[in-house]
Structures are given as C-alpha cells and as structure tokens.
C-alpha cells in the first residue's frame, strides 16, 4: 500500500514538474519570439546565427540528403519490382524526400550540430556572468542572444531543406539511372508528374518549425544552465535530446495537420 502511494506521489511529482517546465519553456519562447518583432534589432547577431545554422550545415545536410535519396531508390526498386513500376521508384523517392525525410533528417542533423553549439555558447556566457554583463550594458540578453537565433533557425532550416530536397531527388536519380538502368528522361518526367506543391510546402513548413525548435532548445537550455563546465555539458546534451524528440513529435503532429483527412 505504501509502495503504491509512493509510486502515485512520484508520478504526481513528475507530472507537476513536467507542467512547470513546459510552462517555463513556453514563457521563454513567447518572450524570445516577441523580441523578434520589437526594436532594436541586432542585424549582425542575426546574420552570424544565419551563417552558423544555414551555411555551415550545408555539407552535412547535403551528404545526408544524397545518400538518403540513393538508399530510397535502391530499396524501393527491390521492393517494388514485383509490381514492376519504374515510375514507382521516382514517385516514392520524391514524395519521401520532400514530405518526410528531407525536413526530418536535416532537422536531426542540424539539432546535433547547431543545437549543441548554441547551448554550449549561451551556457558558457551564463556561467561566466556574460549574460549578466549584457544587461548592465543597456542590452536585453533575450533580444541580443535569443531572438536572432530563433529567427535564424526559422529561416535557415527551410533553405537547407530546399537544398536537401533537390539533392535527395538527385541521389535517387543517380542510382536509378546508373545502377538500375532506368531511362533518365522518364525518371525525371515521373518525378515532376508526381510531385505536388503541397508536398514541398508541407516539408518547408515542417522545416521552419524544426528550425525554431532547434534554436529554442539550444537557447533555453543554455540560458538556464547552472554550475560551471559540467552544467554547460548537461545543457548541451539536453538541448540535443530535447530538440530531436520534439522534431519527431512535431513531425507527426504536422503530418496529421497536413495530410490526414
């Protein structure tokens, strides 16, 4: 009986803790986002974040996309051969990449790369009093550190996903033509015929949401880190784990919103 009560108490505490921390996170997000639209604006900080998130993530996102497209083509050609739909490969590759794998894989890669770096940078600033110092120099740290990164995440991820979409389709095309000996022109025609605006747009909207989530997790965990190098280390881990889980969860929710009828 006592053990049961302890268990119920534990569950209750965890639920309350979860509510409290999601409340804090929501407040943090609302404050950060509200600073995006209120002057003064920090153009330099924004551009720096945009380059850091977007440009420097290009290689890893590009490689991921190419290989994903190649694997998709290979897998689907063996899977679909029974129905022998040459067009099936093209459509499967383009739909999976634009709707699903482009945004999700780019999101996960960027979460590992950028989310960690953000949490580490802001966390170090926190534990060395640099964030306190900002506020004594007429600068709101939410506005200077958080808002530009949120905006950069929101903008950079869709741009990366455009690249990922193109390269993913290209990867599929390479395998289809060079290895499976499909006709190049037919493959491209099939690709173009199958793709619809909604596929691409839904992928880009997902990407924008994921970009915001990654930046939000990096900033939030960095901003609230405590206790020296160790605190910064665990903030980094939390940022990446939380961003990755949230990306997968929001992927489901957004898919439901876009495609479930």
């Amino acid at each position: 009986m006592n053990a049961l009560l302890d268990f119920v108490a534990l569950v209750g505490r965890s639920v309350l803790g979860l509510c409290a921390s999601s409340g804090r996170l929501t407040m943090f997000a609302a404050r950060g986002l509200s600073h995006i639209v209120r002057p003064p604006f920090y153009g330099r900080a924004f551009l720096r974040a945009l380059v850091e998130i977007g440009y420097f993530s290009l290689p890893v996102v590009a490689l991921t996309a190419v290989f994903t497209g190649m694997v998709l083509a290979l897998q689907s050609s063996t899977g679909l051969s029974r129905f022998s739909a040459e067009s099936g490969v093209a459509s499967l590759v383009v739909l999976s990449v634009t709707r699903e794998l482009g945004p999700v894989l780019a999101g996960l890669m960027v979460a590992g790369r950028v989310g960690a770096a953000m949490a580490a940078e802001i966390g170090t600033m926190r534990v060395t009093d640099q964030i306190d110092a900002l506020s004594t120099l007429s600068t709101n740290p939410m506005k200077y550190l958080v808002a530009p990164r949120l905006l950069a995440g929101l903008i950079a991820l869709p741009l990366l996903v455009v690249v990922a979409d193109i390269l993913g389709v290209l990867g599929g095309f390479i395998i289809a033509v060079l290895k499976l000996n499909y006709n190049a022109a037919t493959y491209l025609t099939n690709t173009v015929n199958f793709i619809e605006t909604q596929d691409v747009v839904s992928g880009l909207v997902k990407a924008a949401v994921f970009g915001l989530l990654i930046a939000l997790m990096g900033c939030y965990h960095g901003y609230n880190s405590r206790g020296g190098a160790q605190g910064v280390g665990s903030a980094t881990t939390s940022a990446v784990v939380a961003a990755s889980v949230l990306i997968l969860a929001f992927d489901y929710v957004l898919t439901e919103l876009f495609f479930a009828r």
């Binding site: 600033m125 060395t128 009093d129 640099q130 306190d132 110092a133 900002l134 506020s135 004594t136 007429s138």
Partner: peptide, 15 residues
C-alpha cells in the same frame, strides 16, 4: 540598470 557600470569579479568579457 543601464545607469550602472559593473566590473564583474571574473571580468565577464564577451569572448
């Protein structure tokens, strides 16, 4: 706070 200049014990320079 904007009227106060502060020297932090550890410097707290923006690196």
């Amino acid at each position: 706070r904007a009227q106060i200049g502060m020297l932090f014990q550890n410097g707290a320079l923006f690196d």
